[in-house]
Amino acid sequence: MNEFVLEQQNEAAAEQQKPKEVIRRLVWRMCIATLILMAIGSVTRVMNAGLACPDWPLCYGELVPAKQMNFQVFLEWFHRLDASLIGVSAIALFGLSWWHRRFLPTWLPWASTFSLFLIVFQGVLGGLTVTQLLRFDIVTAHLGTALLFFITLLIIGTALTPYQGTGNVGKLPWVGLTAAILVYLQSLLGALVGSRWALHQCFGGSQLCGVMYSHILGLVPPTVATLAVVLISWRTPALHPALRRLANMAGGLLVLQILLGVATFRLHLQVEPLTVSHQAVGATLLGTLVAFTVLALRDWIASRDISPYSVDLTTSAISTQAHGSNP
């Protein structure tokens, strides 16, 4: 009888876990699609294809502009197609989160609502980039919102991923959070440099050099913070292997990002794949730091929740032994 009841409870628990697992897989697929979308957007910008479709949301008044299709039109059209698919996925995430909210963490429906708001706002900014003829502030906000949407998805996905911490993270959550914020701000500076073509204008006519050098000098704080994440992770005993791997990945991406930035600067943005890779690696570095921070925070919160309970148990056990030893 007990085995039957236990089996029924396990089946009920498995049924409750299904919506969470479906949403987790959906979110990670959306993360990958968003990273690809930002890379395609970078290709669109460096290939001067941002205005290849003169209207919005259609392209030459059609869903598929077959007659006008060339490489530049394809880039802009495919960028919009990918964004539309992510938008549909965001609606699905919103619907699933609210429909199954009884079996999900209370924060998840609200997080999915925020992600849907971001993708809608991102679509509006995408339309404005065309109608306002690639105005630099709108283009910068377009990438900044895409990164924020990417971060939101990563937080949701990482928070839903099974993880059992070791309780030895110390100050790593706050160091990781600082590094992630600094990398995000540096990414916004990079978007501003790209949207204003500051590097070309500085080399060509000594204009907007201040914007370019702000991005170069702005490299220092996120580099120091990211290196701090790596070094502290190395020096932290019994750190969870997932956190150690993410820290090592962040260090490798940082080195690669600096090398790509130097190469892009030295070659005056003449090699488009380098420019695209620079933006894509920067977004990946940001995502790695966000995932690291979320896991470290989960580890830190779990240790604080468990520690008082463990202390109480230990105290009770000692007290019981002491009373038992008294005659």
Rank of each mutant, 00 (worst) to 15 (best):
T226E: 06
L63C: 00
T314M: 13
H215L: 11
L154H: 06
F136C: 00
R266Q: 14
L246A: 13
R25Q: 12
L285V: 06
A242M: 11
T106A: 15
R244W: 08
A159V: 00
T236M: 14
L96Q: 13
S42R: 08
L219C: 02
G205V: 01
T320I: 13
Q270C: 06
V22A: 11
V43K: 03
M69R: 08
F103P: 04
R244Q: 12
A33H: 00
F149C: 05
F78D: 06
G176C: 02
H215T: 08
R25F: 12
F136V: 05
L192W: 06
W300A: 02
E7P: 07
T106Y: 09
W110M: 08
A263I: 14
Q279I: 11
I301M: 04
K18Q: 14
Q17M: 14
G210C: 04
L231F: 13
Q9L: 14
P237D: 06
V311G: 03
A39P: 07
Q270V: 12
F114T: 10
A247N: 02
G41N: 10
E62P: 02
L267V: 10
T275Y: 04
R80I: 13
R135W: 06
L172C: 01
W300E: 03
R29Q: 12
F117H: 02
G170W: 02
I232L: 14
S206H: 13
A263L: 14
T129V: 11
L108W: 05
S233E: 04
C53L: 11
F117E: 08
D312P: 00
R101P: 10
Q122N: 08
I36W: 09
L246S: 10
K18C: 04
L192M: 07
A49E: 07
C53P: 05
P65A: 07
L267R: 12
R298E: 03
S316F: 09
G251C: 11
C53H: 05
V64M: 12
G126V: 05
E11R: 14
